[in-house]
Amino acid sequence: MQNKRRPTKTIIYLLLILLAIISSVPFYMMIINATRDTKDIITGFTFVPGSSLIDNYNTMMGYVNIWNGFKNSLIVAVSVTVLSGYFSALTAFGFAVYNFKGKNQLFLFMLLMMMVPGQLGLIGFYELNKTLGLLDTFIPLIVPTIASPFVVFFVRQYLATTLHSSLLEAARMDGASEMKIFHTIAFPIMMPAVATMSIFTFIGSWNNYILPLVILFSPEKYTLPVLMGFLKGSQVAQNLGSMYLGIAISVVPIMIAFLFFSKYIITSIGAGSVKG
């Protein structure tokens, strides 16, 4: 048995490493290219970094203040992640635990609305925000994500396997209010699901392009993807190294954040299974 298992394990690891390489090659290329100049990039790809990182950085900063965009993106993405995580947990809890009139219809309604293709809603959304006086603010980018059907759907599905009504009953016996039960008992149980979805929400918001492009007018409010678009339309587009550097600056930090966050999920998963 022992002899048989060793090679299997090696093969599995080799397979995983191969998959990991396939997944990370474009990333590596991007980071390497951020340190090379245009001529080198055109001639082909190498695995060795170039020496033009500082030049590329200066060229790029001559056009846009990428750190300001970084700050804006961070404000938006963090707010979105927190709001959508909290309110989705709240909504999913409401759907999973209570039995009320029209519950199934409302859930179905929510599911139906996420099936409508969104491409054409842009003009209506713009007009709505014009009416509400919210154009050129972060609010249209942040507040609507309180209603994130996909996240609610996921957390509810997760609760279906993990939440036991006995836990809630016990808490109610102790005289805890419903909100308190949600915050102290249900939310920790939902945490792995919320955290998982938070990654996607954060990245979705971080990469969101068309909405901020249309909603924001003031350059000092531009988010990173809009600034990258700005770069694409300018002379910098000729300087491929600077373009790659811009993309790298917008991606690498979230990659690092993600790695940390990923660790956190594992800990919360551990906590979850102890309770379950």
Binding site: L122, I123, I210, G229, G233
Partner: peptide, 18 residues
């Protein structure tokens, strides 16, 4: 304000219409 050509009409249309 510079908008890449591919997104230029998308950005202009809502603003000009309203």
């Amino acid at each position: 304000t510079i908008v890449p050509i591919a997104d230029y009409p998308t950005k202009l249309r809502p603003a000009l219409e309203s």
